[in-house]
């Protein structure tokens, strides 16, 4: 399967800027405008969450986004509608972050078919470790949807090999074994060590996420050798202010192009 993330990384000759928001936050209509703003403000790819009532793998900022989206009665159908509209005028790679129960209730087959119909590039299931991944992998492959997996410093060498057998989109590297949200400054050294360790074994691009808030966090991650930088909570906290979101995106994005100037 071809990999749009890897292709883009090769073409741009620099790491990708990947902002994250929850679809439907604060409501489906404004959410579409926010996603369009992300694209217009320099996003190279998007990571978009489907709202879930019990997002155990996310921190308080993302959970609050889920609560707002569900409070506005955002349905999974609405999420796919928003995706379709985003696709109408952009070919940007789109990764989804979804909790397994959402997929289960829609039906695994239907979920991935809907993803394909909306031009989704990859799916990361927040609560599906490799032990259970076979439950979706065939259907994902058949629909041309790439799988994204998470690894952290705590991931053992043995486990890393298993994860790599499943990940064909990108690898989501977690700088510290925590959940998304505010963290102390990202540690360049530990990310670099993790990247070196993973790089030995793999081809798919390595994106770093969790706890990236400032331009200097971005610089650290870029210098550590990441292929992409995922920024979630930092952007979500500015929702629904389009102007603030634009400013944040541009600042973080420029730290990728000019890492030494920061």
């Amino acid at each position: 399967m071809n990999n749009p993330y890897a292709d883009l990384r090769a073409n741009l000759k620099r790491p990708l800027f990947v902002p994250f928001v929850v679809i439907g936050d604060p409501n489906p209509k404004e959410s579409l405008a926010i996603i369009k703003t992300l694209i217009a403000s320099g996003a190279d790819a998007l990571e978009l969450g489907f709202p879930f009532s019990d997002p155990t793998a996310d921190g308080p900022v993302i959970q609050a986004a889920d609560v707002r989206a569900l409070g506005a009665r955002t349905t999974i159908d609405d999420c796919f509608e928003v995706l379709k509209k985003v696709r109408q005028d952009s070919s940007i790679p789109i990764g989804l972050l979804v909790y397994f129960n959402i997929i289960l209730q829609r039906g695994i087959k239907k979920f991935y078919e809907d993803c394909k119909a909306c031009g989704v590039t990859s799916v990361l299931i927040a609560d599906l470790p490799t032990e259970h991944m076979h439950e979706v992998s065939d259907v994902a492959k058949r629909n041309g949807i790439l799988q994204v997996c998470i690894v952290s410093e705590l991931t053992s060498e043995e486990r890393l090999k298993t994860v790599l057998m499943h990940a064909d989109g990108y690898l989501y590297l977690v700088s510290s074994p925590s959940v998304t949200g505010v963290k102390d400054s990202v540690l360049q050294e530990s990310i670099a060590a993790l990247i070196t360790r993973v790089r030995r074994n793999t081809d798919p691009p390595l994106f770093v996420g969790f706890g990236i808030h400032t331009a200097s966090d971005v610089t650290s991650v870029v210098k550590a050798g990441a292929d992409g930088v995922i920024v979630g909570s930092r952007i979500v906290k500015d929702i629904p202010d389009l102007k603030l979101i634009e400013v944040a995106c541009k600042e973080l994005r420029s730290a990728i192009s000019f890492p030494s100037s920061v």
């Binding site: 155990t56 793998a57 397994f100 927040a126 609560d127 599906l128 470790p129 490799t130 032990e131 259970h132 997996c149 998470i150 690894v151 952290s152 705590l154 991931t155 053992s156 486990r159 994860v163 977690v174 074994p177 959940v179």
Partner: peptide, 18 residues
Amino acid sequence: LGQFGSFGGMYVSELLVP
């Protein structure tokens, strides 16, 4: 995986597995 027929399992973030 602690399964009881089709129930149970370990549906958690990869980070929680270790």
